[in-house]
């Protein structure tokens, strides 16, 4: 556990903030850190930059993330990690599909891919215009960005998977990377599999220890640990993860089924 201070807070949207810390990282896009707010709790959060100042982007949506939203520049938090397996860049022509707060690790990936001279196309979706993340950031590094919102307030009205379907009718890619609601990722995988595009998925499960020892973030089918063998899984692994798109385990280990399927 290393304690560091918040150096900068960027208000991305009404509910989403980016926290920059007084600590450097050199990680893989897709890796996560455990963030401790003393006397509150500790949670896993994806890095939104793979190197330089440690940076995370957080949606205020529960007790912990709401507490995070109250933090000020100079406040102290504890950091463990980076942990887990990140994205592996394959080929030259990359497609990123991100929904909501699934976008930050993909933005980190885009940074790294562009550094390595790859072409990046990103499909970025959100519920509404004010929740769309990192469109400017992605465009500024030279990525082609296609946007959509559920309510049509920005970009195309509809889901990332609709944009993906249209795009894959005209073009193909060497590899695809997705992070967002699991139901979305299920549909992304269906489409990329049909087109034979290797795909990597970033899964979210209830991580407790972060170091592969407590077994809380196990996925059924393979028995892999999301904090250790994940959070990024390859499509051929995901096919063996029987719970993917069906359920996840809560804090007690009780199965909670995804609703909108």
């Amino acid at each position: 556990m290393r304690v560091t201070k918040i150096k900068e807070i960027i208000r991305e949207t009404e509910r989403i903030r980016t926290f920059v810390f007084e600590e450097k990282v050199d990680a893989l896009p897709g890796q996560f850190v455990m963030v401790w707010i003393p006397d509150v709790d500790e949670k896993p959060l994806s890095l939104s930059k793979h190197k330089g100042d440690l940076t995370i982007t957080v949606l205020a949506q529960g007790p912990f993330t709401n507490k995070m939203a109250e933090l000020k520049v100079g406040d102290k938090v504890g950091i463990r990690g980076p942990f887990g397996r990140g994205f592996k860049i394959i080929g030259d022509n990359l497609l990123l599909v991100g929904g909501g707060v699934g976008v930050p690790p993909l933005a980190a990936l885009a940074d790294k891919a562009v550094e390595e001279g790859k072409n990046v196309t990103a499909i970025v979706g959100a519920i509404t215009a004010s929740e769309l993340l990192f469109v400017d950031r992605l465009e500024n590094i030279g990525a082609r960005v296609l946007t959509c919102t559920d309510d049509g307030t920005a970009g195309k009205k509809g889901f990332t998977t609709d944009l993906l379907r249209d795009l894959l009718q005209k073009e193909t890619f060497d590899s695809c990377y997705t992070c967002g609601p699991e139901i979305m990722m299920v549909k992304v995988l269906e489409q990329t599999k049909a087109k034979g595009i290797p795909t990597q998925v970033s899964m979210e499960r209830y991580v407790k220890c972060g170091i592969g020892i407590c077994g809380h973030c196990i996925v059924d089918g393979t028995g892999q640990r999301v904090c250790k063998e994940g959070p990024v899984f390859r499509d051929i692994e995901v096919e063996k993860i029987t719970e993917f798109g069906k359920y996840r385990r809560d804090a007690s280990g009780t199965k909670v089924y995804f609703r909108n399927r």
């Binding site: 556990m1 220890c209 407590c214």
Partner: peptide, 20 residues
């Protein structure tokens, strides 16, 4: 069912040890 304690649930200690 029990949800367990709030985090951190584990912290590294001396000589390969863990406190959990």
């Amino acid at each position: 069912p029990r949800s367990g304690h709030k985090g951190p649930t584990i912290v590294k200690s001396i000589a390969g040890g863990l406190i959990s």
